[in-house]
C-alpha cells in the first residue's frame, strides 16, 4: 500500500509545483512507482515542469467524469519507468471535481503505486479541499518571507482541522548570504514560528530556472545545490536520516566573516 502526499503552501509562487516535480522524479529515480497529480485545475503547470506538455490527451477531470480510464490519462515520464503524471484540466475550474472523487481516486492509485504526490493549487478554497481530501501526509512549502510564512501558518491550521495525519515543512529559496547578514529569516526562525517538523531546506538556486526552461527537474543536475537539496528530501521521505544541507558552504568567506559583526 502506497502513500498519498499532498504538496501545499497557501501562497502561490513559493515552489509547490517545482517541489512536486522534483520529489516525484527523485522517488522514481530511487526505483519507486510514483504518480504525480496536478490538482491545479485551470492553471496546470506540472506538465511543463516535467517536460510532458506535448503528450497530454486526457486529464484528471476526464478520469473523475469517467470519460477515460485512469491508465489512459496517466502520462509516462520521458526517462523514468516508474513515474506517471495525471495532468489537470486546463479548460475547467476547481468545481469540476469533489473531495470524495479525489479520495476515491487516490485510494485506488495507492494500491498500485508507492507514492501518489498531489500538487495543490494556491489558496484555501475548493481546490485546496479537493487536493488534501485523500492525503496521508502533507508537505507545506514556504519561503522565508513574511507573507509566505503567514499563509503557511494558515494552511497548517487547516490541515490540522482537516485531520491530515502528518504535516511537515519545506523551506524553499533560502538566501543564506542574506540570512547571515540578518536580512532574511533563517531556518530556525521559520521553524520556531510555525512549530511543525522540518522535512527539508532548499537554497535559492538559479539552476531551478534553467531546469524549468528545459522541462527537466533540477534533481537530475547533481551538481546543483537545489538538486542536492531535493535528493536529500527524497531520501528523508523514504525514511532515511539525512542531515540538513550546510548552506554556509555556499556563501563566500568574506560574507561569513563579516556576518559575525553584523548579527
Amino acid at each position: 500500500m502506497g502513500k498519498v502526499i499532498v504538496v501545499t503552501s497557501g501562497k502561490g509562487g513559493v515552489g509547490k509545483t517545482t517541489t512536486t516535480a522534483n520529489l516525484g522524479t527523485g522517488l522514481a529515480m530511487a526505483g519507486k512507482r510514483v504518480v504525480v497529480i496536478d490538482a491545479d485545475i485551470g492553471l496546470r503547470n506540472l506538465d511543463v515542469i516535467l517536460g510532458l506538455e506535448n503528450r497530454i490527451v486526457y486529464n484528471l477531470v476526464d478520469i473523475v467524469e469517467e470519460t477515460c480510464r485512469p491508465k489512459q490519462a496517466m502520462i509516462k515520464d520521458k526517462k523514468l519507468e516508474g513515474l506517471f503524471l495525471i495532468p489537470a484540466a486546463q479548460t475547467r475550474d476547481k468545481s469540476a471535481i469533489t473531495p470524495e472523487q479525489m479520495k476515491t481516486l487516490t485510494a485506488k492509485l495507492k494500491e498500485d503505486y508507492d507514492y501518489v504526490l498531489i500538487d495543490c493549487p494556491a489558496g484555501i478554497e475548493q481546490g485546496f479541499k479537493n487536493a488534501i481530501a485523500g492525503a496521508d501526509e502533507a508537505l507545506v512549502v514556504t519561503t522565508p518571507e513574511v507573507s509566505a510564512v503567514r499563509d503557511a501558518d494558515r494552511i497548517i491550521g487547516m490541515l490540522e482541522a482537516a485531520e491530515v495525519p502528518s504535516t511537515r515543512l519545506v523551506i524553499n529559496r533560502i538566501k543564506q548570504e542574506m540570512v547571515l547578514k540578518g536580512e532574511m529569516m533563517g531556518i530556525d526562525d521559520v521553524v520556531e514560528i510555525l512549530a511543525v517538523d522540518l522535512l527539508g531546506i532548499i537554497p535559492d538556486d538559479s539552476e531551478i530556472v534553467v531546469a524549468s526552461n528545459k522541462g527537466e527537474p533540477v534533481i537530475y543536475n547533481k551538481k546543483s545545490f537545489a538538486g542536492q537539496a531535493y535528493k536529500n528530501i527524497t531520501d528523508r521521505i523514504e525514511g532515511n536520516d539525512v542531515p540538513l544541507m550546510d548552506l554556509n558552504g555556499q556563501v563566500s568567506v568574506w560574507t561569513r566573516l563579516f556576518s559575525r559583526w553584523s548579527k
Partner: peptide, 12 residues
C-alpha cells in the same frame, strides 16, 4: 534592527 528580527516580530 536587522530586518529579519523585524520580520519575526511582526509575524509572531
Amino acid at each position: 534592527p536587522k530586518s529579519k528580527h523585524v520580520a519575526k516580530e511582526r509575524l509572531q
